[in-house]
Each structure stands twice: as structure tokens, then as C-alpha cells.
């Protein structure tokens, strides 16, 4: 019972990271594709300005995911990190480069330096979600087992590749939707149009990839396929489809407050649908939630930790997002740093 609750917490934390971290990697994706220094100058400045105050918080969700995983389901953690060694190691390197590239680009003045750090930031924003998605695909297709060791075929398989690509497309959608709304907030209607067009394209890519994934999982990850087409899993798939349609409709008009909600709905319900489809397994069909769960006492404490986190962290994060979306947060300018 308590193990099930913690499994749901883990799933929700993954969904939160997919949405928070996803927005951030998505911004990196559009930074990468913004074109040359001249053409991409304005989108890039918007990306800098919009992501600056919130990207670190977006990425802390990942730490939550890891902590819940190794405390609540130590065996799962051990198996995932042993089997999916290479994609996870590369994702870790990607996270360093992404954060460092973004943080260092801002204070650098020379164009060459900005280009270098910007490229580092953008390329790793593409690779990190891919490798994290590939690792998730390895779990979904049951390739993470106690006996498997790190090897390429553990993650270079159809499900992993598709999960990786889906991760990229989903982050690109989120990034573009959020940036479009930011552009409107900063009174830049043409950038709003610019990012809405890209959000729509990315959303189409998500839809196509999702359909392909459904076909591929039929053979490659039968348990997940069955879960996605029946019961709770199916319910969340339908929610995801409806959210996709709503997002597409909202993207055809100037950004308001709602496109962000529906875009988050797409990604979150897709992640939840995947988790629900895996029931009762942590890794289909070799490790159930009950088998993988840690000590009973620990799980109860973990529930308490989660509860405190909800009480303590959610208001703080809400305050940050509120201040940010109301334009109260702004980096120091050169003038502020001179006497």
C-alpha cells in the first residue's frame, strides 16, 4: 500500500521534472535552431531573459526523482543505473554542460565566447533529454533487469530511441509554448507568433512520434502497450490527446494563460499514462512495486518527507513562478554594478 503511494509520488516527480526541466531543455532546443548570431539574436535574448530566474528550480525536480528512487526503491535504482549506464552517464555530462553553458553565456561579452557557451548550452539541451528518455524507454521495454550489464543493446532499441525522440519533441513543445507566452508578456507579438509556429510544429512531431511509439511498443513492450490501451492508462492517453488538441487550438491565436496549462497537461498526462501502464511493475515484467520497495519504515518516512516538501516547497515554487510571470524578477544590469 505505502509502496504504491511512493511509486505514485515518484511518477509525479518524474512528470514534474519532465514539465519543469522539459521547458528548460526546450528553450535550449530553440536556442540551437534560432539561426545565426544576427538572426537568432532576439529569440536568444528572450530565452536568456525568460529562463534565467527559474531554470535551476526546474532542474531540482531531478534531484527529487533520484532521492525518491534510491530511498524508496533502491533495487530499481541499482538496476537502472547499472543497465542504463552509458545514457545516464552522458545525460549527467549533458546536465553539467547545459547549466554551465547557460550560466556562463550571460556574463560573457564577446560574440565568440557567447557563441561557444551558447552552442554548449544548446547542444547539451538536445542530448540530455534524449538520453534520459532512452533510459526510460529501457525501463518501459523491460530491458532493465538484475542480470543485464551495461551494453549498447540495452538502450539502443526501438522503444528507447522513440522515448528519446519523444522526450526531445515534448521538451521542444513545452519550451516554445512557454517562450511564446513570455514573448507576449514582454510585449513582443512577433516573437509570440515565431514561437507559436514552432510550438505547433513540435506538437505535430510529438503526435506523430506518439502514434509510432504506440505501434512499436505493441511488439517491443507488450505490457506497456496493453496498459496504454486499457483502463487508467487509456484514460490518461485520452487526456493527453484532448490536451494536445486544446493546445493546438490555443496555439492558433495569440498566447494567453491557457496554452501553458494545456501543454503541461499533454506532457504530464503522457508521463502518468506510461507509469499507469506499467502497473504493477516498476520494470515490466521483472520487478513489481512490492518487490522493489525499500524498508517499510523508510517508505513511511519518505511519505512524510514528501508531505513536508509539498507544504514547504510548493508555496515557495509558486511564489517564484508568480513573481517571475508578473515581471518582478530581473537580472542586475551593468548600471547596477557600477558606482
Amino acid at each position: 500500500m505505502i509502496a504504491g503511494v511512493i511509486a505514485v509520488v515518484l511518477l509525479l516527480a518524474i512528470a514534474a521534472y519532465a514539465c519543469g526541466g522539459g521547458t528548460d531543455y526546450g528553450a535550449g532546443f530553440w536556442d540551437l535552431t534560432a539561426g545565426g548570431a544576427e538572426r537568432g539574436k532576439r529569440p536568444r535574448r528572450l530565452i536568456d531573459h525568460a529562463m534565467e530566474p527559474v531554470w535551476e528550480v526546474n532542474n531540482v525536480w531531478l534531484v527529487f526523482v533520484l532521492v525518491i528512487m534510491w530511498t524508496g526503491f533502491p533495487v530499481l535504482f541499482q538496476q537502472v543505473f547499472t543497465t542504463m549506464w552509458l545514457p545516464l552517464a552522458l545525460a549527467a555530462v549533458g546536465i553539467v554542460l547545459r547549466g554551465a553553458g547557460f550560466a556562463l553565456r550571460k556574463p560573457v561579452r564577446r560574440l565568440a565566447g557567447r557563441r561557444l557557451y551558447g552552442a554548449v548550452f544548446a547542444v547539451s539541451s538536445l542530448l540530455t533529454p534524449f538520453f534520459l528518455g532512452a533510459a526510460a524507454g529501457g525501463v518501459a521495454s523491460g530491458r532493465v533487469t538484475a542480470t543485464t550489464t551495461a551494453s549498447t543493446d540495452a538502450w539502443a532499441n526501438p522503444t528507447s530511441l522513440l522515448f528519446g525522440l519523444l522526450a526531445i519533441a515534448a521538451t521542444a513543445t513545452l519550451g516554445a509554448v512557454f517562450l511564446a507566452a513570455d514573448a507576449r508578456r514582454f510585449a513582443e507579438p512577433d516573437l509570440d507568433r515565431y514561437f507559436r509556429r514552432r510550438a505547433l510544429a513540435a506538437l505535430v512531431a510529438v503526435a506523430v512520434l506518439a502514434v509510432v511509439t504506440l505501434f512499436v511498443t505493441h511488439g517491443d513492450a507488450p505490457h506497456v502497450w496493453h496498459g496504454l490501451t486499457h483502463g487508467t492508462g487509456l484514460f490518461f492517453v485520452i487526456v493527453a490527446v484532448l490536451a494536445t488538441l486544446a493546445t493546438a487550438w490555443l496555439l492558433t491565436r495569440p498566447s494567453g494563460a491557457w496554452s501553458r496549462v494545456t501543454a503541461v497537461g499533454v506532457v504530464a498526462s503522457a508521463v502518468i499514462a506510461w507509469g499507469m501502464a506499467q502497473r504493477p511493475y516498476l520494470v515490466p515484467t521483472s520487478l513489481t512495486v512490492a518487490q522493489g520497495a525499500g524498508a517499510h519504515t523508510t517508505l513511511r518516512w519518505l511519505a512524510l518527507v514528501t508531505l513536508v516538501a509539498v507544504v514547504l516547497v510548493i508555496p515557495a515554487v509558486a511564489l517564484l513562478y508568480r513573481l517571475d510571470t508578473h515581471g518582478e524578477l530581473e537580472g542586475l544590469t551593468d548600471a547596477d554594478l557600477r558606482r
Partner: peptide
């Protein structure tokens, strides 16, 4: 982590807050 994660991991939960 596989053997001891559930014994000492909770401290990291506090760290995560």
C-alpha cells in the same frame, strides 16, 4: 545504493527540500 539506499537515503530527502 541497492543495499543501503532505504537505510540512509532519507537524509537526502531533507537535502532535497
Amino acid at each position: 545504493m541497492g543495499r543501503w539506499g532505504d537505510v540512509f537515503g532519507i537524509g537526502f530527502g531533507v537535502e532535497a527540500w
